[in-house]
Amino acid sequence: MLTHPQFDPVAVSLGPLSVHWYGLMYLVAFLQFWWLGKYRLLHQPQFARAGWTVRQLDDLLFYGVLGVIVGGRVGQVLFYEPGYYLTQPLQILAIWRGGMSFHGGLLGVLVAMALYARKSARHWLEITDFIAPLVPLGLAAGRIGNFINGELWGRAADASLPWAMVFPAVDQLPRHPSQLYQAGLEGLLLFVVLWLYAGRERPRGAVSGAFLVGYGILRWLAEYFRSPDAGIFGFSHTVSMGQWLSLPMIAAGVLLIVAAGRQRA
């Protein structure tokens, strides 16, 4: 069996200033978003025809960062740990310790993109189609941050599993390193699928729909290897909170793909 290395959550200390690995992973996520977005602008002609510019990409990144941080933290508080944060409200601001909900972050980004759509006079789905392939690698970076922090550990696994891992901060049971599963599924695999799918011009809403369906299905599968949390619904032994929140994503994605198909027809 493997043992979690129990990394120091602080990557660099400069006097009173500490830079956490979790924060660095978010920085990596935002940088790759900008780099991949610039690549799309320069190498996929449909965006040049639509008048997209690098300056608009900068604005998208700014709005997206706000949506991710605010929405992700609010989602964690409301969906997963309302009782804890009700008794420890100041901990809501301690984002460097981890605790960001993807589904909350997604809602935050959707609101931020709606605000940007209004400002730029672009269709909301045109914007989400552009950013959808830029998201998965950022999700992978976030899951690696979870692994470094030793949080969101997996369910107990058979000790014969070659990559079963003990998380000493939890117990001495062999567990699935579910953070790495999610980095591979919701991060690398989803990125490859979306990047290839979005390489050709698609009807408006199709790429956004593919992202919602793809992430929702992969997250549903990955939840079977994560230690379940009861969340606000309390169904930890049947359907986890992550699975509940993925269901409307899948449904919305299917509707978008169907609507996009009708546009093409």
Rank of each mutant, 00 (worst) to 15 (best):
A164E: 02
E201L: 10
V192S: 10
G142A: 10
A157S: 13
R202L: 14
Q182L: 11
A140Q: 13
G184M: 05
L185H: 02
G142V: 14
E186C: 08
W163Q: 07
A198M: 11
I127V: 06
R175H: 11
L152Y: 04
L161M: 11
V170M: 12
G187Y: 06
L152W: 02
F130M: 15
L180G: 05
Q172K: 04
W195H: 07
V192K: 03
L189K: 01
E126M: 10
Q172F: 06
T128F: 09
L152F: 02
L137H: 06
N146I: 04
I131F: 09
I148V: 15
L196T: 10
R202F: 03
E186M: 04
M165S: 06
L134W: 03
F147R: 00
L194Q: 10
L137D: 14
P133C: 03
R202K: 15
P133H: 04
E201G: 02
A141Q: 08
R155M: 09
L189I: 12
R143H: 07
E201C: 02
H176D: 11
I144G: 01
A183M: 13
F167E: 02
F130W: 07
L185T: 07
A169Q: 15
L190G: 04
V193K: 00
A132L: 13
L173E: 11
D171E: 13
G150E: 03
F167M: 06
Q179P: 06
M165V: 11
A141T: 08
Q182V: 08
I127F: 08
I131Y: 04
P174V: 11
Q182T: 12
L188Y: 09
R200C: 01
V166Y: 09
Q179Y: 00
V193I: 11
F191L: 01
W153C: 07
G154A: 10
E186P: 00
D158H: 12
L190D: 02
T128N: 14
G184H: 02
V166A: 07
L134M: 15
W195F: 15
L173I: 10
L152H: 05
G184N: 05
E201A: 14
F191H: 05
W153V: 11
S178C: 08
A156S: 13
V135E: 10
A198G: 12
L139K: 04
L185K: 00
P177W: 03
L161I: 13
A164T: 02
W195L: 04
L139R: 06
A132S: 14
I144E: 05
L152D: 13
Y197R: 09
I144P: 03
L134K: 09
F191I: 02
G145F: 03
V135M: 15
R200G: 04
L139M: 15
E151H: 04
N149V: 01
P168A: 12
P136S: 11
V193R: 00
R143P: 07
F147T: 01
V170W: 08
W153D: 01
D171W: 01
T128D: 08
H176G: 05
D171Q: 14
R155P: 00
E126Y: 08
I148T: 10
I148G: 00
I127K: 10
Y181H: 06
N146A: 00
D129S: 07
W195E: 06
A169Y: 07
G142M: 03
G150Y: 01
G199E: 08
P136F: 09
